[in-house]
């Protein structure tokens, strides 16, 4: 292809009148000798003439075997390859069907079915969930009752203890009060006794003082 592009620029170069018989090329043949671009640019105009000669003569000197092969070149060359490819394709289809499409396809379908079944079975467990919820409620209820019973018992015990302690305290206080009262009474009596004796003395003195000359 690149050669064709290169080749298409060839008429720009002045061709001198050397008639070299170039092989007749079939339409679809594209292989031509390549002249690289830098080479063209580096050539002086005087050498262009010999270059064109070269290009033409190189085609003329092309080995005969090459020419034969070029004659055979064809893009639209139908032959036994076509039915062979058909057979190969059909064999490949059967093989891939046995190895890939059918096994993996059925495996995927089975997995889909299994997943779908699991999903639907999950949806149907609402009764189970309800039962579990009831159980949970019962457990909660029992626990609450137990807790309140324990609380009540504890309250009673505490109250009894408190009352006992209160009673003890009251008794103690009363005893102390009694004692204190008894002490007071005794002191009072003592005081009264001592006062009685003093009263006698005092009354005698008063009498003496009032009645000195009696």
């Amino acid at each position: 292809m690149a050669n064709m592009i290169m080749a298409s620029s060839k008429p720009l170069i002045p061709v001198c009148s050397i008639h070299s018989p170039s092989p007749k090329l079939p339409v679809l043949q594209i292989s031509l000798p390549k002249i690289s671009k830098p080479q063209i640019l580096s050539l002086a105009p005087s050498t262009l003439k010999s270059l064109s000669l070269l290009a033409a003569s190189s085609l003329a000197f092309a080995p005969p075997s090459l020419a034969v092969e070029i004659e055979k070149a064809a893009l639209f060359d139908f032959n036994l390859t076509l039915p062979i490819i058909m057979a190969e394709f059909l064999l490949l289809m059967v093989a891939l069907d046995k190895l890939y499409f059918t096994p993996l396809g059925s495996f995927m379908d089975q997995r889909d079915a299994a997943i779908r079944e699991k999903l639907s079975s999950v949806k149907d467990t609402s009764s189970e969930v309800k039962q579990l919820e009831e159980q949970a409620a019962a457990v909660m209820k029992a626990a609450r009752a137990e807790i309140s019973a324990a609380l009540n018992k504890m309250k009673k015990e505490t109250q009894a203890e408190v009352e006992q302690k209160l009673a003890e305290g009251r008794k103690k206080v009363e005893a102390e009060l009694q004692e204190a009262l008894a002490n007071l009474e005794r002191q009072k009596e003592e005081t009264i006794k001592s006062l009685d004796s003093q009263i006698a003395n005092l009354s005698q003195e008063i009498v003496k003082k009032v009645l000195p000359t009696v």
Partner: peptide, 30 residues
């Protein structure tokens, strides 16, 4: 120069419509 060109030809030949033929029972295949 001819040799150079031929070498270039060998390197850069773009082969379109060139086939490697096998003969199978009188028929050709690519």
């Amino acid at each position: 120069s001819i040799n150079t060109l031929k070498r270039l030809y060998d390197i850069s030949a773009v082969e379109v419509g060139q086939h490697f033929y096998w003969q199978i029972g009188g028929f050709q295949v690519h």
